[in-house]
């Protein structure tokens, strides 16, 4: 049995299942990139094991969270760009 969860990504509800990482939810929904570098290059998962820090997201207002390492919790608010 899997337990469905919903996270909110940039204001839009996105379904997932309990136990997925934030990156897993995003990629499961077809997102391949969600961050841009200061030179405007898109980035998503690269190493997938918490080493490269390419996949950073903001989780519930906290910046610099590795999406591939953080388990998604029902109701999490994910923002893909840091607030100024």
């Amino acid at each position: 049995m899997t337990l469905p969860i919903t996270v909110v990504v940039d204001g839009v509800a996105m379904p997932g299942v309990a136990g997925q990482t934030v990156a897993g939810v995003l990629m499961g929904a077809g997102r391949l990139s969600w961050r841009t570098t200061r030179n405007g290059r898109p980035r998503g998962v690269f190493c997938g094991i918490g080493v490269c820090h390419d996949c950073l997201v903001v989780v519930n207002g906290l910046a610099d969270v590795r999406a591939c390492q953080r388990r998604a919790i029902d109701g999490d608010e994910i923002s893909t760009e840091e607030q100024a």
Binding site: T21, M27, R43, F46, I49
Partner: peptide, 28 residues
């Protein structure tokens, strides 16, 4: 962890370390 040598375009989304593909397959 893996060592991945750079090549032109290796930072494009969709280019992964082999370990990332393995991790996404096994735990997601």
């Amino acid at each position: 962890y893996e060592r991945t040598l750079p090549f032109p375009g290796w930072d494009l989304p969709g280019v992964f370390t082999a370990g990332a593909a393995q991790a996404l397959a096994k735990s997601e």
